[in-house]
Amino acid sequence: MEESIKLHYIVPGDDFTRAGAASGDVKRTLKELGVSPAVIRNVSIAMYEGEINMVIHANGGEIDVEITGEDIIMTLRDEGPGIENVELAMKEGYSTAPDNIRTLGFGAGMGLPNIKKYTDEFSIDTELGVGTTLNLRVHIQ
């Protein structure tokens, strides 16, 4: 791949049923590009968890995806409440999601740990009252 491919998505915050549409689109794009199934799965799961987080915690946000010959770089940006304690949020099983989210199958405290698990590079920029940005990278080879 000589030139990188850039994709941009707006994740609406008010429709839980549509959460994951952007991740599904990226998955289909990577498939068409012939990226290996294992890499596609890692990217899709990490992005999907991020997308769900945006809907649960931040009333939506925006996602930029850049596909180069070597990496898939995802930037997930929201203007939500920010994460008070990143170290705690990274612990499996820790969740601040409301109970109604658990009835929908999420809020088990696995979101950020899963995102970290499925990416090669992972960082969080967060500020209370301002928002959160996740910077994710998955190597293609």
Binding site: F16, G20, R41, Y48
Partner: peptide, 17 residues
């Protein structure tokens, strides 16, 4: 196998191939 019924069940299965 799940007892949950909402569209995210299908999306989750999709992400997991």
């Amino acid at each position: 196998l799940t007892g949950l019924v909402n569209p995210q069940v299908v999306r989750t299965a999709e992400m997991m191939d």
